[in-house]
């Protein structure tokens, strides 16, 4: 049986990396795509500055540009215009290998559909994160991280043997095991039931409190209540930016 997420779970951010600076800065960033003869603008002249250790929720309807924003910060994509800096490093001007290095050592991802490796066990999936980031004692790091998300007892199970919530926790553990100071989560609760979703948000919230900069993309407004800051996108523009209305709520108060 899966173990519950431990309340005393220790965050696993690599302190030395966090100290290197994890600010996220976007200045006049636009992203346009050409689809045949048509140019589609996903983001238009976006300016955004995120401090270290913030828990930021990016809200917006489908097609508003929130995932594009996350991809640009995560160096998966390159801006057509403007400048993206992560931890002081200019992602826009970086070469492909430099962007790969940034993904190895600065940012980590949690995907909506988990994207676990079916050929690796839960523990090995988590170890993957630590291995790629080049962390010493990758195995031990993976074990403690997996225990941190309450899945020590499921370490040797393969993804197809885990429930959706367990798979997402493994995915988060994989991202955390990198020890990278910026965590980017794209609809992390999108495929989960309410209880599991809340548990996952609690886990992410704790990482932010421990010093990780967490950016969560969602269309679920309820999730925004636990954020330090809520950024709302519409048609590629930031239409709102600030703390959640009514102040930050504890995770236990969420319901949807």
């Amino acid at each position: 049986m899966a173990q519950p997420v431990r309340d005393d779970a220790k965050p696993v951010v690599d302190a030395s990396r966090a100290a290197a600076g994890t600010r996220v800065d976007l200045d006049g960033v636009s992203r346009r795509y050409r689809i045949g003869d048509v140019t589609v603008t996903a983001l238009e002249q976006v300016d955004l500055h995120v401090d270290e250790a913030a828990f930021v929720v990016i809200l917006g309807p489908s097609g508003s540009g929130k995932t594009t924003l996350l991809n640009l910060i995560g160096a998966l994509d390159v801006a057509t215009e403007g400048r993206v800096r992560v931890g002081g490093q200019d992602v826009t001007a970086a070469s492909r290998s430099e962007r790969a290095r940034l993904r190895r050592h600065t940012v980590s991802f949690v995907f909506q559909s988990f994207n676990l490796f079916p050929g690796l066990t839960a523990l090995e999936n988590v170890q993957f994160g630590a291995d790629v980031a080049g962390r010493a004692q990758a195995r031990q790091t993976a074990e403690s991280t997996l225990a941190g998300v309450g899945l020590a007892g499921r370490a040797n199970h393969f993804p197809h043997q885990l429930s959706g919530g367990e798979q997402q926790r493994v995915a988060i553990a994989r991202a955390l095991a990198t020890g990278n100071p910026v965590l980017l989560a794209d609809e992390p609760t999108g495929e989960l039931d309410f209880r599991t979703g809340v548990a996952i948000l609690d886990l992410l919230r704790k990482q932010a409190e421990a010093g990780t900069t967490v950016l969560v993309v969602t269309h679920n407004r309820e999730i925004a209540r636990v954020a330090d800051r809520v950024i709302e996108l519409s048609s590629g523009h930031i239409v709102a930016d600030g703390p959640p209305p009514g102040g930050r709520a504890p995770v236990s108060e969420l319901h949807w």
């Binding site: 909506q112 559909s113 988990f114 676990l116 490796f117 079916p118 050929g119 690796l120 066990t121 090995e124 999936n125 170890q127 993957f128 291995d131 790629v132 990758a138 993976a142 040797n156 393969f158 993804p159 197809h160 043997q161 885990l162 959706g164 798979q167 495929e191």
Partner: peptide, 28 residues
Amino acid sequence: VGHLAARQVRFTPLLRRLALPGRSYSRM
């Protein structure tokens, strides 16, 4: 779709035993 589409994999016990030393992705 997604994780729900994950199918039962044969030889799961054997898969588990194929734990080569080294990095996780070297086992893939």
